[in-house]
Amino acid sequence: MKVLKYIGLCFLALGCSSLEFNDFWKNPDIDTYSPNKVLIVGMTSNKKARLQFENGLKEAYELRGVAAVTSSEFLRASFTSEKKTEEDLSALEDKLINEGFDTILLTKVIGVEDKIAYKTNYKSFDPGYTKFKEDYLKYQDAYYNPDYYEEYSIYHTETSMYCICPTNPRELIWKGYIDVTDPNSVDDTVNEYVRLVVIILDEEQLINPGFIDTGVHDPAIQ
């Protein structure tokens, strides 16, 4: 039911026809979580999208009185240019703890689906077309008309929150899955994604309380 609620909230609040929140997992041992200092990591080779995404979430955390640092600020450029070992990442976690971090928020694309859709919707059965030639004429564009089909891509993304608290196990707190369908504007899509993540974390009490302008002003929805 919560997933359905968030999907509805996504469309009402953001008007985000390109975003769909599919599922999430929350650590059953954690009801609420108030981070003190967060490292925000966007794993993408698109530097512009990464900066915009990380800075958007940084601003959201800072508005709630939480210290936040982007990976673009904290990690050297060379860190992402080559593969890391488990020992490298353990050393990074130790460094984060020594510098007062207790949380990592990691977002990445975990898969891409290429889709093909008809540009025109047809009924499954039309009683007016009962002859071969009528049926053939209606659908013959499939052979030679490139406009008969529409190709698009769905990007499956995952955002995860990890605790690296020095006195507690380094564990997963929350993980959510969001699909981004054929984004036309990187700026708009990133902004919508950031707002959706913040709304969900707020609902799950995993981010310090703060005002969220969802764009919905109906008292029945607030």
Score class of each variant (00 low, 15 high):
163 C>E: 09
59 E>I: 13
150 E>S: 14
155 Y>N: 01
67 A>H: 12
113 E>P: 02
100 G>C: 00
151 E>W: 06
97 I>K: 15
52 Q>E: 15
86 E>V: 03
129 Y>G: 00
79 F>E: 09
70 T>L: 09
38 V>L: 02
84 K>N: 08
147 D>N: 09
29 D>V: 04
77 A>I: 07
139 Y>N: 09
136 Y>S: 00
80 T>R: 11
50 R>A: 15
159 T>K: 01
141 D>R: 12
51 L>V: 14
153 S>T: 14
74 F>N: 13
96 L>V: 02
37 K>R: 12
95 K>V: 00
54 E>Y: 05
92 L>R: 10
160 S>E: 03
71 S>D: 14
44 T>D: 05
39 L>R: 10
147 D>I: 06
56 G>L: 11
135 D>S: 13
145 N>K: 11
26 K>D: 04
134 E>A: 04
77 A>N: 15
109 V>P: 11
29 D>A: 15
158 E>A: 02
125 F>K: 10
33 Y>G: 13
76 R>K: 12
26 K>N: 09
45 S>W: 00
60 A>Q: 15
132 F>M: 13
108 K>Q: 09
139 Y>G: 02
146 P>F: 09
133 K>F: 12
32 T>N: 10
27 N>D: 14
30 I>Q: 03
120 T>Q: 06
99 E>Q: 15
87 E>D: 07
48 K>M: 08
88 D>Q: 07
132 F>N: 00
139 Y>I: 10
150 E>Y: 10
131 K>I: 12
138 K>C: 07
40 I>V: 15
67 A>K: 15
76 R>L: 09
135 D>I: 14
26 K>H: 04
54 E>G: 06
88 D>Y: 06
121 N>P: 06
93 E>L: 04
50 R>M: 08
119 K>S: 12
98 N>C: 05
103 T>G: 04
131 K>C: 02
139 Y>E: 03
123 K>F: 05
59 E>P: 01
71 S>P: 08
143 Y>D: 10
111 G>A: 09
137 L>M: 12
51 L>E: 13
48 K>G: 11
38 V>T: 13
71 S>M: 10
33 Y>S: 12
116 I>M: 10
31 D>Y: 02
130 T>I: 13
121 N>C: 12
74 F>I: 02
42 G>P: 07
28 P>R: 01
128 G>H: 08
88 D>K: 10
154 I>S: 01
136 Y>F: 13
61 Y>S: 01
132 F>K: 03
154 I>E: 00
137 L>D: 14
66 V>Y: 05
144 Y>F: 07
42 G>R: 11
143 Y>M: 13
136 Y>V: 04
53 F>Y: 14
56 G>H: 08
122 Y>P: 13
65 G>Y: 07
66 V>M: 03
45 S>N: 12
75 L>V: 08
35 P>K: 02
53 F>W: 06
63 L>D: 13
36 N>Q: 10
164 I>D: 05
94 D>T: 14
152 Y>F: 14
50 R>P: 08
127 P>K: 00
157 T>F: 07
138 K>A: 06
154 I>V: 15
153 S>R: 11
101 F>D: 10
